[in-house]
Design a protein around this nucleic acid. Structure first.
Lengths: 198, 198
DNA sequence: GTCTATACTACGATAGAC
DNA sequence: GTCTATCGTAGTATAGAC
């Protein structure tokens, strides 16, 4: 068995886990099911990852993009910062809706996994929070409670149409990334009473 | 055993189920746990409701408020309709955050229960959808894709701070219902480029 | 209407053969 | 590195005593 094979099995398990966790949740998905989907033996999750809980951590490490924080300047113009966040989250949401669904599920259920998720995601939200406050201080944005405004923006960004539930409500084809980003930026910046040019 | 006692046990089971489903989800909650919390015997869920799945249906019937649709005129002014929806959903969210969490969970997980949820909730969303389109046709609202705008509004309304996950981000005390409604109405109506007076 | 006892199924994890 | 077989636990549901 070459190293390539080992990697291959691990990757297949990770991919199967992501797909199934998104469809059925962590609790609703069994190791047996994951391994069947991955074409691997039931014992291999324990062997390669050390159990189901650790598999979840490995899944985050594998699939979560740390691009945004690596290169961004926290002291940049706050309006540019808010817009950048909208663009990055929208791109992420479109690139990997399954991972977004998994994260939403863990947050809503308040599972023990939220700590692992926080480590990846909270730094980005802290930046957005800071930029929104700076924008208000400089008179560029206007809103009442920072917390209500912040949660409104996050809700706009994270809630998406990929859920089967909404299929009976929607009538148009999903827009491309650029269109989606532009329309969300408009909605959010106007909602925050941005006074400048979009 | 009087009828009052029967009702009492059923109500205690329903209340325990709501609380636990919100905290741990449907799959993550066992009948044993529900009955322990309710001070009832494990067999009574089967006896009174016919199983865990039917208990969920009974929970919706008991707790979901059908107030909005009963009295509303679908042909009312679309702007008033959108504002009414914002007010009612915000009030519901604040009055019964547990039920909102349960509904969000089922939607995100795409469980077999979404059909039961749809029966209660979709009519309201259809009205909001219709009012938003009418508002645009009459030149009162402006947005690109109706679906993107609709999902943005729904995301703003449904996403809320009651999740433990966000506690590390928030700094203010939760506002009262009136303040929350006013700020959400501002954010949403401005995001939809409403041209009139708020 | 309520309870105990139990049947049946599925889960996660791992020891041990290969 | 992979597989089979199995252990211990926990789930839903129900039959039958009271």
């Amino acid at each position: 068995m070459s190293p390539a094979d080992e990697t291959d099995v691990k990757l297949r398990i990770l991919a199967a886990a992501k797909s199934l966790f998104a469809k059925q949740g962590f609790d609703g998905t069994s190791i047996r099911q994951i391994c069947e989907e991955a074409g691997a033996n039931v014992a291999l999750v324990s062997y390669h990852f050390g159990g189901k809980e650790n598999l979840f951590g490995a899944l985050l490490e594998s699939y979560f993009p740390n691009r945004l924080l690596a290169s961004v300047d926290p002291d940049m113009d706050p309006i540019a910062g808010v817009k950048l966040t909208i663009r990055e989250v929208t791109a992420f949401r479109q690139a990997d809706p399954q991972l977004v669904t998994i994260i939403q599920h863990e947050i809503i259920m308040n599972t023990p996994r939220i700590q692992k998720i926080r480590e990846h995601v909270i730094p980005m939200w802290r930046l957005l929070h800071k930029w929104m406050k700076e924008g208000r201080e400089r008179g560029l944005l206007r809103f009442g409670s920072i917390d209500t405004a912040f949660m409104s923006v996050v809700g706009t960004l994270l809630f998406h149409r990929k859920q089967e539930y909404w299929s009976v409500m929607l009538e148009e084809e999903p827009p491309d990334l650029e269109t989606m980003t532009r329309e969300l930026t408009e909605y959010i910046m106007l909602g925050l009473q941005y006074q400048g040019e979009l």
